[in-house]
Design a protein around this nucleic acid. Sequence first.
DNA 1: ACGAGCGCCTGTCGGC
DNA 2: TGCCGACAGGCGCTCG
Length: 274
Amino acid sequence: MPELPEVETICKYLRDGTETSPSILGYVIQSAQVLWPRTLATPDVDEFSRRLPGQSIQSINRRGKFVILSLTRNTLLIHLRMSGDLLVEAGDLAPALHHRMLINFQNGLRLAFNDTRKFGRVWLVDKPEQVTGDLGPEPLDEGFSAHDLYLRLQASRRQLKPLLLDQSFLAGLGNIYADESLNLAQLHPLENSQHVSETQAERLLDAIRRVLNEGILRNGASIDWVYRGGDFQNYFRAYDREGQPCLECGTLIQRIRVGQRGTHFCPKCQKLAE
DNA sequence: ACGAGCGCCTGTCGGC
DNA sequence: TGCCGACAGGCGCTCG
């Protein structure tokens, strides 16, 4: 799934629960099972399984695309990468086909990490900064200003699309929301970051925030086999809309390849400055 | 400092 | 129908 709005949606689901699923705050861990060992970035399976039992879930937060579960003594970080998902379910069910890790609680429920493509990773560490230390600012953080963004753009000379995907530049954007943000801000994905004016930087941050907030409001986007009820995919402006009319001017959306990622934009609204 | 290419995985889709 | 390549919401690693 995961870009910032989808990860935020999952955090909310775990923290607040839903009509059919409880919050896991305060749940006490009884045991852990790692069904696909490479899921575990650190420590090894033995130590992981030894340290978790007895700890409880103190808080659930997001930083960039990381889900962060603060436990009694340690911190559990989960990155869903391309196809990961977190589910609260009955502890006596047979593990589903793509379940990679199970955290069993004392109350008979469990947290399941489902990840078809096996790219997802889990860390159990003492300090979350050990994992999230290189992340750039949070785009929705009020303390992060358009001027801050402008200075960061000036400090680089990269193309905007790869820059927005770089988690050390800005945390949380992925391929969908980068395309959507650039389209709304009317900036070309290949534009050099040093050519972006202060006014354009303001427009870009505003666009990023609008797109992310709308994604969160709609519980993220649901595509293919990963479905959580989010419907932001019905409101895409550019992503996955090759050959369809731009919502602004009717010009057909183009798809190009940028840094091996499919990139969608309107050739009329998003002009290269050069 | 930066971009390109590839590896990691499974599944789906379109073309032949 | 079957096979095969391209592609997918991510990221870390090489290599120029």
